[in-house]
């Protein structure tokens, strides 16, 4: 199988895709952090203990 040489365009798309990936991961982290804060008012350890005692 013969692969063509990588075009400069692919490199530029790669940088855009990596950037977009980082933004999406950051967005997920923000949502997760916000959820923890909303649910526990910042008391993460208390929330973990509470969750464990409910099991």
């Amino acid at each position: 199988m013969n692969f063509g040489a990588e075009h400069e365009l692919h490199k530029r798309r790669m940088s855009k895709n990596i950037g977009l990936g980082i933004i999406l991961v950051t967005f997920v982290a923000l949502i997760f952090g916000l959820t923890v804060v909303k649910v526990t008012e910042g008391d993460v350890s208390g929330a973990i203990v509470g969750a464990a005692s409910n099991e």
Partner: peptide, 8 residues
């Protein structure tokens, strides 16, 4: 036309 915009 070929320019691919980057994150910047």
């Amino acid at each position: 036309i070929n320019y691919e915009p980057n994150i910047g």
